[in-house]
């Protein structure tokens, strides 16, 4: 169920000093797509994501996000590799943050925060503090915070990289369910071939030095994926195809270690 282009990157470049982090990248993402940016470290995938978020300024080119139709407070949600929660604030206050910054009063915001917490399965932990939660739970809080302002676009920067395998699998499934329920467009950065193939409807393979887009690979398997897909032949085939493409982009010295 993909629709009109929602994010358009047109010949985007980003330099940090002398380093060309992203070189002349063009990409069009349609509404409802689940896109992963896959590549080795230093390929500029996080930089591209942060430019879409408006956190990093561009050196050249332009990024357009189609105008929002709804009345969401924020069009974008962002989830970092670390949970990035405020340690001094309760789970409730952490999730309430985007609404507070948008000027939504506490009484209006409260049901929204409760709903977001319920969606990630943390209703009972509204009054806990981040230090009392496990890594997976903190990540769920982070996701609830990103979703509370009802964005159309969810940007995720290797969100599950630091989690153990079982937690990651569970969160992968929950994330697909959530993005399907909300009709979200997701841009997901990862360096895991398996995660990208399992989660997304389209894999963008990137290479380093300079960071650039090398392949755009749509994945046709029905989405959201079921747990069975993980062990199917199709999954293995797709993973091999993506893996080969990724290998082709690496320099010899990178493959060695």
């Amino acid at each position: 169920m993909t629709g009109d282009p929602i994010i358009t990157m047109n010949r985007v470049s980003k330099e940090f000093g002398d380093v060309l982090a992203v070189d002349n990248m063009s990409l069009s993402i349609r509404e409802g797509e689940f896109v992963t940016l896959l590549g080795p470290s230093g390929c500029g995938k996080s930089t591209a994501l942060k430019m879409i978020a408006g956190i990093l300024p561009l050196t050249a080119g332009e990024i357009t996000i189609s105008p929002a139709k709804g009345n969401a407070e924020h069009d974008l949600g962002f989830v970092f590799q670390e949970p990035t929660l405020k340690p001094w604030a309760s789970v409730f206050d952490n999730v309430y943050l985007p609404l507070r910054l948008a000027g939504v009063g506490r009484s209006d915001g409260e049901p929204r925060v409760r709903e977001a917490l319920k969606e990630v399965g943390l209703s009972r932990f509204a009054r806990s503090y981040p230090r009392q939660l496990s890594g997976g739970m903190k990540m769920r809080v982070s996701i609830a915070r990103a979703l509370v302002s009802r964005p159309r676009i969810l940007l995720m920067d290797e969100p599950f990289a630091a989690l153990d395998e079982m937690t990651r699998t569970k969160l992968n499934n929950d994330l697909m369910q959530l993005s399907d329920d909300h009709g979200l467009t997701v841009v997901f950065v990862t360096h895991s071939v398996f995660e990208s193939v399992y989660l997304s409807t389209r894999v963008i393979v990137m290479a380093a030095r300079p960071g650039r887009l090398v392949a755009d690979m749509p994945l046709d398997a029905p989405w959201p994926r079921s747990e069975d897909y993980r062990t199917s032949i199709e999954f293995t085939d797709e993973a091999r195809r993506v893996s080969e493409t990724l290998k082709g982009t690496l320099h010899v010295d990178e493959i060695d270690h």
Binding site: A53, G54, I55, H74, L76, F78, T84, L97, L101, A102
Partner: peptide, 16 residues
């Protein structure tokens, strides 16, 4: 730093 970025993305005022 990431929280700072988040505040930037959400267009927080300097006071916020």
């Amino acid at each position: 730093h990431n929280l700072r970025d988040l505040f930037t993305m959400y267009r927080a005022t300097p006071w916020q």
